[in-house]
Computed example of a mutant assay.
Amino acid sequence: MKYSQAKVRRQSNPAADKRARSTGAVIARTGFADRSHSWLGHHREVAADSVRRFFATPMASVMTALVIAIALALPAALQLGLLNFQRAVAGWDGQPQISVFLHKEATDTAVSALAERLRSDSAIAEVTYVSPEDALAEFEQASGLGDVLVGLGANPLPAVLLLRPRDAKNGEKLQQLVESLRAQALTDSVVLDLAWVQRLAQLTELGQRFSAGLALLLALGVVLVVINTIRLHIESRREEILVVKLVGGTNAFVRRPFLYSGICYGLFGGFLAWVLLASGVAMLSGPIEALSSSYGSSFELSSPGARYLLQLSLGASLLGLLGAWLAVARHTHEIEPR
């Protein structure tokens, strides 16, 4: 009876019936803000889940991160050693110096005239006069042989003029200047201290190139370690990947958790590398300071600070991301529902 009455009302009011049918299904459209919020929310969820999975197997995770840390700590330690070496020789300006040893019979007036004449030379930037007494005092302080020198009676060291050439890069002009200095009447001998500067520059360049090559080689090792680790993760979650793809999950959706896992391995590996580096510096600081103080130097070993921590963590995270991306691109395409 009620059904018949309702049918009669619908027949008598076709407009109301049309409105009722039109409200039966509504097409929902998702805005850009909603999609962005969902995308960011999924990233947060996947990142947190990756961290939980990392600590869920602490032994395996720490071992992998430690392998990454050792690979990163080796070139980082070499680079830090080069920086400390450059700090140690910072007092040397790297410019060649010409030492003009004068005859012991040269008078003070003649030496002063020669020094003034050299200062007016356009090829010479600076002239420093070192008297025999100053040279002897400096030698006693540097060598610690003061008691032996006292027994000599007379001062065996001559007066010296230390010259800084203006154009230190032109070897031909330097050699011409040395020849002109040797021709001076008051000159006993001339020494061009250029070899040690060249050796120091070559040694520094060699260390930098070796450090860069070692860093590239070990960075490749880090990427391979992450690739192998993520490959094992993919195999262990094969069924989960199949289910996600069956319900329409995209490749980006499948790839995202493994990328965050690679970042986690790299991030913790970079932190452990910084810990290893800081521990090594702490162990060596005492002996190095004692050695430098024995030579009358106040040199202190520079320790890796927050900048080193940031560089290692960021670099290791990028390497972990790269390794995870390569592993996912290679292995997830092989897992397809049939």
Rank of each mutant, 00 (worst) to 15 (best):
L319Q: 00
G213A: 15
A77G: 11
L78A: 12
Y129W: 12
L186E: 07
L82Y: 06
V243Q: 05
N84D: 05
T250H: 10
L136Y: 08
L318Q: 04
S143W: 09
V281P: 00
V127H: 04
I124D: 03
A6S: 08
A201P: 02
S22R: 14
V150C: 04
L291S: 13
V243E: 02
L277A: 05
M1Y: 11
F32C: 10
T30D: 06
H103P: 01
V243F: 09
E205D: 13
L40D: 05
A56E: 10
E289M: 10
H333R: 15
S317T: 11
G296A: 08
S279P: 02
L136F: 13
L136K: 04
D193N: 11
G280N: 04
V89H: 13
Q5R: 13
G280I: 01
L80I: 11
E133N: 09
Q95E: 13
S294I: 07
I241F: 07
R237P: 03
S99A: 14
A56G: 12
E336D: 04
P287T: 07
L284W: 06
A15V: 14
R10D: 11
V244R: 04
S131G: 06
S313K: 08
A282M: 13
L277K: 05
V328L: 03
L217S: 11
Q202N: 13
G320Y: 01
L242I: 10
V150P: 01
E300G: 12
S4H: 12
E239K: 10
R338L: 11
G41M: 06
P158M: 06
P96M: 03
P96E: 04
E116K: 14
V191M: 13
W325R: 07
R21L: 14
R35P: 00
L203D: 06
S292K: 05
L276W: 09
Y265G: 02
H37T: 09
V160N: 00
V191Y: 13
Q79N: 09
I98V: 15
G266K: 00
L312Q: 02
E140Y: 07
G305H: 06
A106G: 03
V127A: 03
S131E: 06
F268A: 02
K18W: 15
E239Y: 14
R199I: 08
L318I: 15
Q95Y: 07
S285A: 11
Y3D: 09
E105S: 11
I335V: 15
G270N: 04
V254G: 00
Q79C: 07
K7H: 14
Y295Q: 11
I27P: 05
D147G: 09
L152I: 13
V150W: 14
G269C: 07
S302T: 09
S38V: 12
L214G: 03
F101H: 05
E336C: 04
G151D: 11
M59P: 01
G323S: 05
I68K: 00
S122L: 15
A28L: 15
